[in-house]
Amino acid sequence: MNILQALSYPPILRGFLALILAGCCFPLAGVFILRLNLVTLRFTLMHAALLGAAIGLALHIDPLLAGLALDLITIAAIGRVARESGLALGYVATFFMVLTIGLAFAVIYKAGVPAKDAFGVLWGSIYSLSPVDLALTALYSLVLVLFVTLLFTRVSAVLFSREIAFASGVNEAALTTVILLFVGVSVALLMKLIGALLLDSILLLPAIIASFTARSTRGFFFQACLIGAFCSIAGFFSSLALDVPASSAVTVIAACLLGAGLLYKRLARRVS
């Protein structure tokens, strides 16, 4: 079967479109994660999604929706606790990371939820997306792009310095919470799309690679999205050609680009 034939199958076409959308747009959230030191947050959200799934299964609610809901609640709680306590977001995220996994195992045990069903929320597949999933991904991508584009100056103020943002008249607390929510939804959607273990290949690695060459915040956002799009498209077609899982192919390509980026950085330092 050639690629065009493969794309004639609706599940494969949906997966391809969702992967492109995610690759083009979700690295914007990766920039937020890098700058606000939220790398721990994605583990926190994985654990919160697991807790949500366990609660959902216990209450006979869709585990994916329950996982997403708990992700959003966790994000809001992290933002609030960080503000009230003055602790760094990373430390608060670590606290919730530990808390949610502990609670998840407690719920799984006490409610008699099959563990593999709860853990199923962490494994994704681009070929199992429904038309609604694709529409949701498209809508969210649009909202994320509009958020960064229309509020660029305020967003870059928060990323530069939250104190300066506040002093410049920005509602820094509200904007930081919104940014955290975008991170949360990005992680939740990517878990559905390519699974929890590999979501860094679309969310984080493109942003890290872009940080090596970007000279401005606009450039940082743009390059992260360009790299994300390249990894997604190249990964998808590679996976069809080589008969490997799409998420793995995307990850290997992103990792290779990261290696090339590190080499570039090293060479650039030697030259200067």
Partner: peptide, 17 residues
């Protein structure tokens, strides 16, 4: 700050509100 941001973008922050 070592975040990628240009000189003009730093000044632009002052026009936020």
């Amino acid at each position: 700050v070592d975040f990628p941001i240009s000189g003009r973008e730093v000044v632009e922050i002052g026009t936020c509100s």
